[in-house]
Write a protein that binds this DNA or RNA. Structure first.
Lengths: 339, 339
DNA sequence: AATTCATTCCGAAACGTTTCGGATTAGCTT
DNA sequence: AAGCTAATCCGAAACGTTTCGGAATGAATT
């Protein structure tokens, strides 16, 4: 590995000059610059970013902390698509991504902040973190710039991006109401997600606006998991034949509800209308294809990285949150109720 | 950020001693070690891995170079699942992952090797790279340890992991033959993938073994893409009504073939049997569910990282390749031909 | 002829670690 | 009392950069 010193020696100039030549400073003669560039190429030189980062105190790296980087995340491609957006946006402005996953946190017995500081990341994006994660507060308290995906926290050096979950839920429920449904249940996720609260709020608001009754026992808990949703939906649907529609807080849970409906021999959408949330890849391929509220996951990632990098070069005090729009995608799991 | 110097000053010892104390060397008194550890904690110290890497010339980082880290990869979760395996395996042995994507290569006008050397990664895993990628040779020639996923190259410092594609294809075709099919076509990917050649070999070998005719015009090219497969399959199926089964080199292409069949009003599996390859998440949800050859993508990633890290601590000359087994998953797109 | 000034270059310190070689001390052995 | 050993500590160099402050040169201005 050729270093800047090697170039200096070979080209007969000082280290300083090589550095300044290669970095485009103006106080070096065109001829010597050319000469230095040539010998650099000849020696197949690559700068050592470690050394550079050390002295400049800027690593040009952002940490990506995802909770479940594991196979279970494969079904909803949420994490993956968000990552793609982050990667594209970060590489636009010359940042590289370093991957942390929560199991590596556990493995190394280190907190997120320790991990970040050791690796000298300039900022971090957190995705799939639950609200009750004990380390969240620690990250906020640290002065590491940070943006969350789908967790609404703000502060000095911390922001977030999310989608308009309340309105998204309202669109879904309104769609059902417009079709003529009146007995509409909801399959919600767990309490440790902001989005759960928001989507429930939208659900209740829309019911209220339509003059329909809001009933707590119509809101189920599926923990954002397919099997959990199935086993919660099964007894509920059995006990409540009057329910003709279910709004689900995630597509994955909608899959579970569809399975429960199948076991109960309820036809979709004739006997039971279902709306999901997320628009995961799968939802286009279910039988029948799932009506759902689409979130632009790629865009969320893109905006998250954009937000973070703009915080990093904190020239202007930036808006530290971003809310993206959702849209309803009507497929074939929704129809007017039978009678 | 507290440094080792701050600790030294505060604890009244030298930098050397702090370093040796914190790193568990034996030549430091238990009492002073304790004292140093306490002040380290008190100052909320985190070691700076950049500095450490610089002097030790070991970054504890491996690069992950994926070709298409973008939305189009979302459908087949291939890349994602491989990544999960890599991440788990790497974090087992204390390595962190840094993400490069080919578009960042293009963006920065830098070659893979430059990227790797600048970031001082100790080794790199390459996934989704085409055989004709101009940089492959460069990576091989460089002395950066490297393992490829699904590209069979070997050499000093380079290995690969793949699955038994020939045998996988044979299983698929044998399954069709056993059902009674004799006119079996194949939808292959592009020429720039090792797996294409392998799967075709398996297809032909199995036909030959069964005494069936191998016909070049029965092998189509779908470029591993769903729409390409659809538009290749449509005219072919129309022109060859005698064909009762198609073996596809990827599930994504199988989806395309299914669409083409639908447009031609061919019933699956009654009029046309289809076998895919990969067992992507989607294949379980198609209508009907897809019979396919399953590859353990997570395991491929896991083995790739394991291979690389064992190459890195090159104590023993390791076996520089790994071939994983596949298995046939029979779902509902295959049945005996009609008459 | 003395002065300013722009251009072009360089020395040395700094970033936060690790590590080699040696130094100091105290306790034992003769 | 001299020598030896083991235990414990430390100074200084090194890793590959960037950058501050200044130095040398020559041309242009007074």
């Amino acid at each position: 590995m050729a270093t800047i010193k090697d170039i200096a020696k070979q080209a007969g100039v000082s280290v300083t000059t090589v550095s300044r030549a290669l970095n485009g400073y103006s106080d070096v003669n065109d001829k010597t610059r050319k000469h230095i560039e040539d010998t650099a190429k000849q020696l197949n030189y690559s700068p050592n970013t470690l050394a550079r980062s050390l002295v400049m105190n800027k690593s040009q790296t952002i940490g990506l902390l995802v909770s479940e980087l594991n196979r279970s995340g494969a079904k909803d491609m949420f994490t993956y698509e968000v990552m793609c957006g982050i990667n594209d946006s970060a590489s636009d402005v010359g940042y590289d991504l370093i991957l942390f996953s929560t199991n590596s946190v556990k493995q190394k017995q280190k907190s997120y902040t320790q991990l970040c500081r050791e690796r000298q990341v300039e900022g971090v994006i957190m995705q799939g973190i639950k609200m009750d994660d004990p380390y969240i507060q620690e990250v906020i308290d640290s002065n590491i710039p940070c943006v969350f995906v789908d967790v609404e926290v703000e502060g000095k050096d911390v922001g977030f991006v999310t989608t308009d979950n309340v309105f998204g839920a309202q669109m879904a429920v309104k769609h059902l109401i417009n079709l003529g449904h009146t007995e509409i249940a909801m399959m919600n996720g767990h309490d440790q997600a902001h989005v759960s609260a928001k989507r429930r709020k939208g659900y209740e608001r829309e019911l209220t606006d339509a003059g329909l009754h809001v009933r707590d026992e119509f809101v189920l808990n599926g923990d954002f998991l397919e099997p959990m949703a199935e086993s919660a939906a099964y007894p509920f649907l059995k006990a409540h034949p009057e329910v003709t529609a279910i709004f689900c807080a995630s597509d994955l849970m909608a899959l579970g509800v569809m399975k429960a409906a199948k076991r109960l021999e309820l036809k979709i959408p004739e006997d039971l209308s279902i709306v999901g949330f997320d628009d995961i890849v799968l939802s286009e391929y279910t039988n029948p294809p799932l009506t759902t509220v689409s979130q632009d996951k790629y865009q969320m990632g893109y905006e998250a990285a954009k937000l973070l990098t703009s915080m990093l070069k904190n020239d202007v005090p930036v808006q530290k949150k971003a809310t993206l729009d959702n849209r309803l995608i009507v497929r074939e799991t929704t129809a007017p109720p039978k009678h």
